[in-house]
Deep mutational scan, measured.
Amino acid sequence: MGKSNSKLKPEVVEELTRKTYFTEKEVQQWYKGFIKDCPSGQLDAAGFQKIYKQFFPFGDPTKFATFVFNVFDENKDGRIEFSEFIQALSVTSRGTLDEKLRWAFKLYDLDNDGYITRNEMLDIVDAIYQMVGNTVELPEEENTPEKRVDRIFAMMDKNADGKLTLQEFQEGSKADPSIVQALSLYDGLV
């Protein structure tokens, strides 16, 4: 993909415009910024974590950033290329609610087996709590990752089998306004 070129080839721009919710001009602008920050044309896990640390200076986002990195890194080569970056950004910032929920499901399904187990969710929720640090005051019933996961599973795990399917996750998330709101945070920002 033209590693350190400051412009993408027209056919690449066209393809990314088809695969995302961005215009050709927006794709070019994002590429310019991506190459400025990642001259090699790729972003590794350490660089990704560094970006998260800028956004969450009062907590430790390392663990959460690693989980997000793994979802962005579609081809699992340990690096995020621009096409992976822009497609994930498109879903998280401008995707439909169902697209965002499928993306979030992939984030929580750490072993990619098609289910979110209690332990997988606990890993992610714990990482989120570490990331936000003491900057967020949580209600008593959610002031630990374990309590939050218990509440989520009580609401979403309809067949009580200890794991969530994509359908259970989507339906449960849509029924909880706070989850829908959290997924909409990026709307309109890009």
Score class of each variant (00 low, 15 high):
Asn70Tyr: 12
Lys100Arg: 08
Ile35Trp: 15
Glu74Ile: 03
Asp157Thr: 07
Asn112His: 11
Asn5Asp: 03
Ser178Asp: 14
Gly188Thr: 07
Ile128Pro: 15
Val68Cys: 01
Glu11Asn: 00
Val125Ala: 10
Gly133Met: 11
Phe22Ala: 00
Tyr115Trp: 08
Ala46Arg: 03
Ala127Gln: 08
Gln170Ala: 09
Asp176Cys: 01
Glu14Phe: 14
Asn143His: 08
Leu107Arg: 01
Phe153Pro: 00
Gly133Arg: 08
Arg79Lys: 03
Thr135Lys: 05
Gly41Glu: 12
Leu16Pro: 15
Phe55Tyr: 02
Lys19Glu: 14
Glu11Thr: 14
Asn159Glu: 11
Trp103Met: 09
Arg118Leu: 11
Lys25Gln: 12
Asn143Tyr: 09
Gly114Ile: 02
Phe85Ile: 12
Asp113Ser: 03
Gly188Asp: 04
Phe105Cys: 09
Gln170Ser: 08
Gln130Leu: 09
Ala175Val: 10
Asp73Gly: 06
Phe69Arg: 08
Thr117Gly: 00
Pro39Thr: 00
Pro177His: 14
Val149Gly: 06
Ile51Trp: 01
Asp109Tyr: 03
Gly188His: 07
Thr66Cys: 00
Leu43Asp: 15
Gly172Glu: 12
Asp73Leu: 13
Asp77Leu: 13
Ser40Lys: 06
Gln29Trp: 15
Ser90His: 15
Ala160Trp: 06
Glu84His: 03
Thr62Arg: 14
Lys3Asn: 15
Lys174Gln: 09
Thr117Phe: 09
Ser178Val: 06
Gly95Trp: 08
Asp98Cys: 00
Asp157Cys: 02
Arg94Val: 11
Lys9Val: 14
Val180Pro: 14
Ile116Tyr: 15
Phe64Gln: 12
Gln181Met: 01
Gln130Lys: 11
Trp30His: 03
Asn5Lys: 14
Phe64Cys: 10
Asn143Glu: 01
Lys36Gln: 01
Leu43Ile: 02
Tyr108Gln: 13
Phe82Lys: 09
Cys38Glu: 04
Lys174Arg: 14
Phe169Ala: 03
Leu110Asp: 11
Lys9Arg: 03
Ile80Ala: 03
Pro145Val: 00
Pro145Ile: 14
Pro61Tyr: 04
Pro39Asp: 03
Phe58Gly: 13
Phe67Cys: 05
Lys7His: 02
Thr20Glu: 12
Gly47His: 06
Phe85Gln: 00
Gly162His: 03
Tyr186His: 05
Asp111Cys: 12
Gly2Ala: 09
Lys76Glu: 10
Asp111Ala: 11
Leu138Ser: 12
Leu122Pro: 10
Tyr52Phe: 12
Gln167Ser: 14
Lys25Val: 10
Tyr52Asn: 12
Ala46Asp: 12
Asp157Ile: 03
Lys63Val: 04
Phe56Thr: 01
Leu43Trp: 14
Leu185Ser: 07
Asp113Glu: 04
Asn159Cys: 00
Asp187Gly: 13
Glu11Cys: 15
Phe105Tyr: 08
Val190Thr: 07
Lys63Thr: 10
Arg102Phe: 15
Thr144Phe: 02
